[in-house]
Design a protein around this nucleic acid. Structure first.
Lengths: 179, 179
DNA sequence: AGACCGGTGTCCGGGATCGGACAGCAGCAA
DNA sequence: TTGCTGCTGTCCGATCCCGGACACCGGTCT
């Protein structure tokens, strides 16, 4: 668990090399040519982000395979942030990709600083999502209570009603969590 | 609380009229020319979605004002789904808009069926987000427990550890929630 | 003033919940 | 077989939390 490690899904070896070079010092880059090359059991938890090439299957129109791969990856590990890479510039595809759960969308050719920034952001997002997913029940409760009180604008009674508990119960929990 | 009501932020009256016509039967459409025309206290909770025109401030480059408006609206009501409308087709802007919390991004001129579909999806998203935000503490706990057990692949001990509670406590809660 | 309202903060007895402990079970290695 | 491991499901006495009730407070009516 030294530096972050990311997974690059890209069939063009020249691009693989270029990305590996651009991201030296940012993350270790592992590489597979396409999402179909993922073995049945794959250690997603080792990776801090995925860079996913949209066009690994050039014969398929509109990069639909790339979109499907997003769903596939997210089903396998919903905490893993995915950055799309593509030469096709359609707004519709970008929107669809983000709606399916990609966290960013970069056009080739990219500026290296943008790639680095997007990768860093994705790594950060993954770690935050994993922290959130691994939250203890107590922490979850604390968050829910904080939000409820905020939404009720400090009105304890309404917050308690929204949370489905009695007002004294909410007082106790507020004190317990130190709020 | 009869049909859904949506808020259209758009300065071009011809477009306002066209959208109102396209969405007849889908939602009641209220309209203001720009986000700055929102009064300090505005009943966001009455609306089931927002259609936000990107270009209400033509002198500003790149529709940055439109992007800022997303943040403004989401700060006011984070459960309200926002659909962007724009004539500018840049992928970068679309990506930025979605990253800032818009739920969809339509290019003018749009196909009416796409507009209707996007509006319906936004209305649905809002209602789901509001249902989630208004969840009782019990329901939140139940969800967290379900997810934890799923993530632990049915292993009760690991799920309990991840939730930060003892195993008997998790058993009790599983039974209480009927899982 | 006096009554009312909607809110806050606190108390206390009874019942729910805690977690350590125990028994049991399946898999596996010596 | 024996022993070990890692899990499941359950028990029970000590403890904690529940929620109805109460006192109180500030604003707003008549």
């Amino acid at each position: 668990m030294d530096g972050p490690r990311i997974l690059l899904i890209e069939d063009d070896l020249a691009i693989v090399q270029a990305i590996g070079f651009a991201l030296r010092g940012v993350a270790e880059v592992d590489h597979i040519p396409g999402p179909d090359d993922l073995p049945d059991t794959f250690p997603f938890e080792r990776y801090a982000a995925v860079l996913l090439d949209m066009n690994f299957r050039p014969e398929q129109r509109e990069g639909r395979a790339g979109l499907d791969a997003i769903g596939q990856l997210r089903a396998a590990d919903p905490t893993l942030a995915i950055v799309m890479l593509t030469v096709f510039g359609g707004v519709a595809i970008a929107v669809e990709a983000l709606k399916r759960g990609a966290c960013d969308f970069l056009l080739k050719p990219w500026r290296n600083d943008r790639l680095v920034a997007a990768t860093r952001a994705a790594i950060d997002l993954t770690s935050r999502q994993r922290a959130g997913a691994a939250m203890s029940l107590d922490a979850i409760e604390r968050h829910a209570i904080e939000r409820a009180i905020e939404r009720a604008e400090g009105n304890i009674s309404r917050a308690a009603a929204a949370l489905g508990i009695t007002r004294p119960a909410l007082y106790r929990r507020i004190e317990k969590h130190g709020l």
